[in-house]
C-alpha cells in the first residue's frame, strides 16, 4: 500500500550562529497515498532539501515527517529515489546496476531476473541489459536509473529533478513513461522540478515553492484528465494552470 506522507511544521537551518542559513520552512503539507505531488520552484529554494528530509537522509531542524503516522527518524528503505545525477555505477552493466539496489538490501537478484527484464522493456531498454552506462545516452541512463529506483517495488517514489539534464525531446518521452507507470501502480510520488509544464503535466497536486527560505506558497490541485497527452497539453485548461503558476513566480520576482 502506498503511504500517506505528513509534513508538520518542518524547517531546516544549515550551520549555526550568525552564519546560519535558513534553507527551508516552516512547511506543512499532507501528501495523500497514491498521489503525484510536485515540488515546483527555482533552484536554491530548498525543494531538494525537503525531498532528502522526506527520505530520512537529512535531519529536520524543527518539525517532523510521518509516513502513515510513523515518524521518520532514519533513512527510509521502503522508497525508491532518483537523483538528477543518476546512481548508476560505471563498473556494472545496466542489469547489474539494477541488481545493485537489491544486493545492497541483502537480496539475491536471481529471482528478480524476470522483473528486471520487464522493467527494462517498459522503458524500451530491453536490448541494453548487458551494456555499461557509458555506452548509453543521457536519456537511456536515466531510464536505467528509473528501473534501478523501482526494482524493489517501493510504494513511494522520490524524484529529484531526474530529467533536469536531458534534452527537451528525451524529457518529453520519459515523462510519458513516468506517467504510465504511476497510472498503472499508483505509488505515492514526490517529484522535484523547476519546470512548470512538467509539474502540471505529471502531477495530481503542484506545490509552488518560493525561495529563501523555501516555503510552500500555494498548493494547487491539477484537475485535468489522465493520461495527460499532447491533446491535454494543448487544452486551454492546461495553459491556464501554467499561466497562473507563472503569475505566482512573477509576483515573487522569480520570473
Amino acid at each position: 500500500m502506498a503511504a500517506t506522507i505528513e509534513i508538520k511544521s518542518l524547517s531546516k537551518t544549515f550551520g549555526s550562529g550568525p552564519q546560519a542559513v535558513h534553507a527551508f520552512g516552516p512547511v506543512d503539507l499532507t501528501i495523500e497515498a497514491g498521489s503525484f505531488v510536485s515540488l515546483l520552484g527555482p533552484s536554491g529554494c530548498g525543494k531538494s532539501t525537503l525531498m532528502l528530509m522526506v527520505a530520512g537522509l537529512l535531519d529536520a531542524s524543527e518539525g517532523a515527517i510521518y509516513f502513515d503516522g510513523e515518524r521518520v527518524g532514519a533513512p527510509r528503505t521502503d522508497i525508491g529515489i532518483m537523483f538528477q545525477d543518476n546512481t548508476l555505477v560505471p563498473w556494472r552493466s545496466v542489469e547489474g546496476n539494477i541488481a545493485l539496489q537489491l544486493e545492497l538490501r541483502g537480496l539475491d537478484p536471481k529471482p528478480y531476473a524476470g522483473r528486471i527484464r520487464d522493467l527494462l522493456r517498459s522503458v524500451k531498454l530491453e536490448g541494453f541489459a548487458a551494456r555499461h552506462p557509458y555506452e548509453l545516452s543521457g536519456g537511456m541512463q536515466q531510464r536505467a536509473a528509473f528501473c534501478q529506483a523501482l526494482v524493489h517495488e517501493p510504494d513511494t517514489l522520490l524524484f529529484d529533478e531526474p530529467l533536469g539534464k536531458l534534452d527537451a525531446m528525451t524529457r518529453e518521452s520519459i515523462r510519458t513513461d513516468l506517467q504510465a507507470l504511476w497510472m498503472a501502480r499508483r505509488p505515492t510520488v514526490v517529484f522535484v522540478t523547476h519546470s512548470i509544464e512538467e509539474a502540471v503535466q505529471l502531477s495530481s497536486v503542484v506545490c509552488v515553492v518560493t525561495p529563501r527560505p523555501g516555503r510552500i506558497e500555494r498548493t494547487i490541485e491539477i484537475d485535468l484528465p489522465w493520461p495527460r497527452d499532447m491533446e491535454v497539453k494543448a487544452s486551454p485548461a492546461f495553459t491556464r494552470y501554467v499561466h497562473d503558476i507563472q503569475g505566482i513566480f512573477r509576483d515573487y520576482g522569480v520570473l
Binding site: 532528502l52 527520505a55 537522509l57 533513512p75 527510509r76 528503505t77 522508497i79 529515489i81 537523483f83 545525477d85 543518476n86 546512481t87 555505477v89 539496489q101 545492497l104 538490501r105 541483502g106
Partner: peptide, 13 residues
C-alpha cells in the same frame, strides 16, 4: 559522490 552515498543509505546497507 553525495548521490551514491545517499543511494546506499536509502537501501539500508
Amino acid at each position: 559522490s553525495d548521490e551514491l552515498t545517499r543511494f546506499c543509505r536509502s537501501t539500508g546497507a
